[in-house]
Design a protein around this nucleic acid. Structure first.
Lengths: 346, 346
DNA sequence: TTGTAAGCGTTATCAG
DNA sequence: CTGATAACGCTTACAA
C-alpha cells in the first residue's frame, strides 16, 4: 500500500521539521542544499510522492481547477469545431495559469459545480437558465466568466458581434440582388425541436437570436428554420425542409457546418451552387470535405475567445476586475454566393 | 464578501453543534425536521452555500474528480469521432459515479496529474511514454485505467482486438483477389512526420502497430504511409502520396476518416471506387458527407469502451480488482471494395 | 437525536 | 535558513 506517508513522516526521517520539508517541495523559500537533499532522500526512501493535493488545497485555498460548464451534452458540444477551438483556447490559457479544466454539465447528473473544488468557472454556451448557477458560484466567491452569456448576470462576457457579423453577410447577399432568402438557424432554445419559426417568436439562445436579428436588419421577413444543432446532417435536414416548401435564391446558415449541409442538399436536388442557390455560413472553420466549395462566411476568432476567457479568469483570480470582451468577425468571401436569376437547372 | 462563513458559524447561529449542521447538509444521518429547518434557516440567513469542497475532500479523501489524461492536444483529440464517443462513454459512466472529468495533458504545461486532487485517472490514447505517469499515480494510490494502453503497466486496459479486426479486413480484401495493397496508418509515434514507412520500423503507438500487424498477417509487404492523424484531409494527403508512386488495387486505411480522404483523392484522380481502387476503413463511424459510399469497415464500440472505463474505475474505487476488457470489432461490409482488375478508367 | 473530540495533511507566519 | 504553532473547514466515531 502506498500513500500513507505524510510530509511529517518524511520530515521526521530527515530530521527536520514539517515546515522545512514542506518548503523543500514547494520551493517557495530557500533551503540549504544539504537539508533539501536529505529531505528528498527521505522522501524517496519512504515512497513519499509529494504533498497531497487535497490538503494543500484546503490550506492554500487553490485547487488548480477551473470548471467549464457546458449546456449541451458533451457529445453535442464536441461535435462543434467552434466549441472545440474555444475550449482549446481556454485550456491553453488556463494551463498557463497552472490549472486544469473540469468538464461540468449544468444538469442533474454531473456533480454540481458547487460540490467540487473550483478556483474559477466558465459558463460556456450559455442559456438563460444558467443564471442561478452563476449566482451561486459568485456567492461562493468563485470567479465566473461566460462565453456568449447574458450581460445582466454581472460577470464578464466574452462574445462576438453576432448581429453585425450576420448583417454583413446579409448585406452581401442583398447586394448581389437576392430578395427571397431563408435562414437556417442554430438551436432555438435548450429544448426545442427543429422546425420553421414564425417571425414573432424570439429564440432564448443569445447568439441564435442575435444572428437572426442581423439578418432581419436587411431582410424583412426571411423564412427561418431552426436546426437541432450545428452539423452537416442537421443542415441537410433543414435545407430539405425549406426547399420542399419554398424557393429562396439564397440561404443564410448560422454555422459553416449547417451551410455545408445546405450545399449538399441543394446539389442532391439538382441545384447548382451558387448559380441556383447562394449559401453563406458563419464561423470560418474548415469543413472537412467541402472542396471545391469555399464558403462565403464570417470568420470568428474562436481560439482567441478561449484565450480571452483565460485572461479574464486570471484577472479575476488576482482580485482585479475583468472587462467583457466582444470580438469582431471578419468577412471571408468564397465561391458559394453569386447574383440570383439564372434559371433552374434544365 | 461571501464565503467567509463556515459550517461552525451556521451551527452557532442555529444553536446546534457543528457536527449536527454537517449532517444536515450531507443527509447521512437522521436529524429531526425541526433542527434541520433551523440549520437551513441559519444557513440561508448567513449566506452559507454548503460545505467547502476542499475541506470535505481532505476529510473524506474523495474529490469527485476523475482525471482524463490525453496525449494529443485537445484540438487534435477532439477531431476524432472515436475519441469523442469514448469520452462520452467515460463521462456518462463517471457521472453516474458522481464524479466529473478533469482534462489533463501529459506534457509540461498542464498541471501535473499528481498535483491535482484526483480520485482516479484514465490514460487515454496512450503511448509508451505514459508509463511513468501511470507509475507515479499508482504509487499515490490513485486507481488508473487505460484506454488502448500497455498491458505491462499493470493497470486495467480497455482495448480492441485491433490486429484481428484489421486482419479480417485484409482477408476480405485478399479474398476479393487483391495483391497490391497499401496501408494508410494513423500516427506512427507521438512526434513523427507523415510519410512512407519501411517494413523494419515499428510504430510506438500501440493501436497503429497492432492494426498494421493485422494487415501483415495477410499481406507480406504492403506499402505503408503514416498519416498525421485521423482526418479526411490527412487521408487525401496520404492517398495522393501513395498514388503518385504506386498502383495498389486496394488501400486499407486505419480509420474511416482517412478512408474517406482516400476515396476523395481517388475520385479526383479519375479512379473509380471500388472498380479501380478498393478502400477499407476502420471505426465504423458515420462520416459526414461520404454518401453514396458506404465504407467497408470494422465497427468498434467506442462508447462502450468509455462505459467500460467507468465500470473499471468504479470497481477499483471500491477496492476490488478490475479486469482488462478487450472489445471485439464487427465487420461491416459496404460498397467500397470489389474484385480488382477492371482496367483503369478510359 | 445531538454533542464532543479528534484529526484529515498541509502551509503561512513569525520568531529564533 | 529552520522550527514551532496555528489554523484551513469539515466529517465521523463515539459518547451522552
Amino acid at each position: 500500500m502506498a500513500s500513507k506517508v505524510t510530509i511529517a513522516d518524511v520530515a521526521r526521517a530527515a530530521g527536520v521539521s514539517a515546515s522545512t520539508a514542506s518548503v523543500v517541495f514547494s520551493g517557495k523559500i530557500k533551503v540549504s542544499d544539504e537539508t533539501a537533499a536529505r529531505v528528498r532522500a527521505a522522501a524517496a526512501d519512504l515512497g513519499y510522492r509529494g504533498p497531497d493535493p487535497r490538503a494543500a488545497s484546503l490550506r492554500t485555498g487553490r485547487s488548480g481547477i477551473v470548471g467549464v460548464v457546458m449546456t449541451a451534452s458533451l457529445r453535442t458540444a464536441f461535435l462543434d469545431p467552434i466549441a472545440i477551438a474555444t475550449m482549446d483556447g481556454i485550456v491553453s490559457s488556463v494551463a498557463h495559469l497552472g490549472a486544469g479544466i473540469l468538464l461540468l454539465r449544468d444538469d442533474g447528473h454531473t456533480p454540481a459545480a458547487t460540490e467540487v473544488p473550483l478556483d474559477a468557472a466558465v459558463i460556456f454556451g450559455s442559456h438563460r437558465e444558467s443564471s442561478e448557477l452563476v449566482k451561486s458560484l459568485s456567492e461562493r466567491g468563485i470567479p465566473v466568466v461566460t462565453v456568449e452569456g447574458d450581460p445582466t448576470w454581472g460577470v464578464p462576457v466574452i462574445s462576438l458581434d453576432n448581429a453585425d457579423a450576420q448583417a454583413q453577410l446579409a448585406h452581401h447577399v442583398a447586394g448581389l440582388g437576392h430578395h427571397e432568402v431563408a435562414v437556417v438557424s442554430l438551436r432555438w432554445n435548450s429544448t426545442a425541436e427543429p422546425g420553421f419559426q414564425s417571425a414573432s417568436e424570439a429564440p432564448t439562445i443569445d447568439f441564435t437570436r442575435e444572428r437572426l436579428a442581423g439578418v432581419r436588419e436587411v431582410f424583412d421577413n426571411p423564412i427561418v428554420f431552426s436546426a437541432r444543432g450545428s452539423s452537416v446532417d442537421f443542415g441537410i435536414e433543414a435545407a430539405n425542409a425549406i426547399l420542399d416548401h419554398h424557393q429562396p435564391t439564397a440561404i443564410l446558415a448560422q454555422s459553416d457546418l449547417l451551410a455545408a449541409g445546405v450545399i449538399r442538399a441543394a446539389i442532391e436536388r439538382g441545384l447548382r451552387v451558387p448559380e441556383d442557390l447562394s449559401v453563406t455560413g458563419f464561423d470560418g472553420v474548415v469543413v472537412d470535405g467541402l472542396a471545391p466549395y469555399q464558403l462565403t462566411t464570417m470568420h470568428q476568432p474562436a481560439y482567441d475567445k478561449g484565450r480571452a476567457v483565460g485572461d479574464a479568469l486570471s484577472r479575476l483570480l488576482d482580485g482585479e476586475v475583468a472587462p467583457s470582451v466582444r470580438f469582431t468577425c471578419t468577412f471571408r468571401p468564397g465561391n458559394t454566393t453569386a447574383p440570383p436569376g439564372r434559371s433552374p437547372v434544365s
